[in-house]
Design a protein around this nucleic acid. Structure first.
Lengths: 349, 349
DNA sequence: TGTTAGCACTCGACTGATTTGAGTGCTAAC
DNA sequence: GTTAGCACTCAAATCAGTCGAGTGCTAACA
């Protein structure tokens, strides 16, 4: 059944009010705002209808109403006013994002930080899986005292490094670096299968006078370092903000939520399920019971036309959706633009 | 005035009990444990004495007693039983710490993680200031599309990298790398003053056909990257654990504490004030009001014979001091050993 | 027919009195 | 010096009573 125009206005007023106060909203409160010019009694009748239709919930007989998940959903889809980012906010965002930006990781972390600053909610971001980025360069640096540092630089600006206990001299390190580069540079992590690594190892053993053990050692590390690029990283920002909401005035619940936010697997799964563009999951629409009283708004970011990660905001169900959506949208655009500048479409930099 | 043997035993029993329960301890509770074979009345008398002497506090007339800061201090200095690390704990510690360890940062983070796992309290670690480590190597990698990645590797295994928008070709990058290395490699961050950088810039301008703007750009980044090594990094682990203590059952207080733990400057200052070896600050002994209900146990770790950083545990005043001390001691020893292996004394690796 | 004033009703939140019980200090007896 | 006993204290729990925000329903009104 369609909602009459008046019902929509009342529902909107109720949700707007509830977002601010976190207290059940009574008919008189809406009537007093006098935007509709209706008495509390009339609004009461409409509210009773709205409750029957599933948009509102009455915690107990003598309390006002709060929105149901369905109510929020309708609000988000149809009622919500567009939030206009303030000029200052946009300028601040631009200032931060255009500070010297170096690596992918830094950009993502910054985006998360900005999102949590703008919205004052908890943010979660996932970094791209990098199995499509190419090995730009491998470098072995002899650190002396039997240690060699292996550094791998990818076309996406990620640097992986690990020190290995292998006793070689500078000269040999340089030669090995050269040979390795000629074999490995330009490959994607996907292409660097274990078999391929082994094959390279066999080839090298022929042209370098080196103990097989040492070579295998090094190649093993290279493999692992590259392999780890496959991992999706997750960063959480401003988790403590949940403690400010009356929804989490119970310490036990707050602890539960914080524990949830510390579990990377949860978060990857949670955010991974989102659809492209701005995605909103209200309350029980989330697959995790821990979030049944929270909402999650996510937006993807891309390199070229390929979605590589998501930025998400977790807050109480009565979050300021309009503001969150506007902020995320803005941030995602900026991130896209910067990634584009840095890595030109395919990360083929 | 000296405490009689019996008073000491009673004080110890009270604090042991209070550490477990967080509830004021009554005379009957102590009497019932029957370790001393005294009636509650006798213990009552002694407790009255101990209170008068400042070791105990009575929250209100009809409550039991809780230890005062002075009481804890005496407990820590004289009464506390030595905590014996379990074999499993030590094995676990060893297993984690001897996993492939690469950089300094990883080691420190691991140490912090282990400390929080073992003690179940919040841990704070500071990473070394690295102004005494030497530049091992500088490398400019042309990323294409007008971006150059500057990579700096230090003798302590730290890698700093930043991408800069400068349009040069591979060949020039290689030459510049070579020249830069010949001038800068081997220097400490301290030696690389801004003046020195400028001087190098002037020299290079003579021998390379390069626009001054580009060179200054690069050297600026080099300077900043190296300069940032001077920063002490702080990592906090398991901050959420404070939510488990009745001391923080008030969400407001918990939030305050978490905010404090997010402020890096606070933490550096807090931990920086500690004396060498194991240092214990009980309640108001800490300079920050936020910690007046908490205790802080720190231990330093060293490279060679030089103290380079500290690992700290923050918990309620009634923390299990013996266990925390034993754990930190053990961890610090392991860290020392590993740093020693990796960087051989002076970080001259 | 839609709107509104009025009123009885509900029920959580607050208030204040009362009870409970853990724990004390003091005294007197051992 | 130790302890049993007892009066006393006081926070916390319990309970009854009140308040008031908010509702649903009805009847009157435009």
């Amino acid at each position: 059944m369609e909602l009459s125009d008046r019902k929509q206005k009342i529902l909107q007023a109720i949700i707007d009010e509830y977002i601010g106060t976190a207290e059940p909203v009574g008919s008189r409160a809406i009537s007093k705002k006098n935007e509709l010019g209706l008495s509390s009694a009339t609004i009461r009748n409409e509210m009773a209808d709205l409750e029957e239709m599933g948009y509102l919930i009455q915690p107990h007989t003598s309390a006002g109403r709060i929105p149901s998940d369905v109510g929020y959903r309708f609000y988000v889809n149809s009622l919500m006013r567009r939030y206009q980012m303030s000029v200052e906010a946009i300028e601040k965002l631009q200032a931060i994002m255009t500070e010297r930006v170096s690596q992918l990781e830094t950009i993502i972390r910054k985006a998360s930080l900005i999102a949590s600053t703008l919205t004052e909610y908890t943010t979660v971001v996932t970094s791209p899986k990098l199995n499509s980025s190419r090995i730009k360069k491998i470098e072995l640096v002899n650190m002396g005292f039997g240690n060699v540092m292996i550094v791998i630089i990818t076309s996406t600006g990620i640097i992986k490094n690990q020190s290995v206990a292998i006793d070689i001299d500078d000269d040999f390190a340089a030669r090995l670096t050269e040979v390795l580069n000629s074999r490995i540079a330009g490959l994607t992590a996907d292409e660097l299968t274990f078999d391929k690594i082994k094959q390279i190892g066999d080839e090298l053993e022929g042209c370098l006078d080196v103990q097989p053990r040492v070579l295998i050692n090094i190649l093993n590390f290279v493999y692992e370092a590259i392999d780890s690029l496959d991992q999706t990283e997750v960063y959480v920002n401003n988790a403590k903000s949940i403690l400010s909401y009356p929804e989490f005035s119970d310490v036990g619940k707050a602890r539960e939520m914080l524990a949830f936010l510390e579990n990377k697997d949860n978060l990857v799964k949670l955010i991974g399920g989102a659809k492209d563009g701005v995605d909103i999951k209200i309350g029980a629409e989330n697959e995790f019971a821990e979030l049944s009283n929270s909402s999650l708004v996510t937006v993807n970011y891309s390199m070229g036309d390929k979605v590589v990660g998501r930025i998400g905001v977790i807050g109480p169900k009565r979050m300021d959706y309009a503001k969150v959506i506007a902020s995320l949208d803005c941030i995602s655009n900026h991130v896209d633009k910067i990634l584009d500048q840095l890595y030109n479409t395919e990360g083929e930099g």
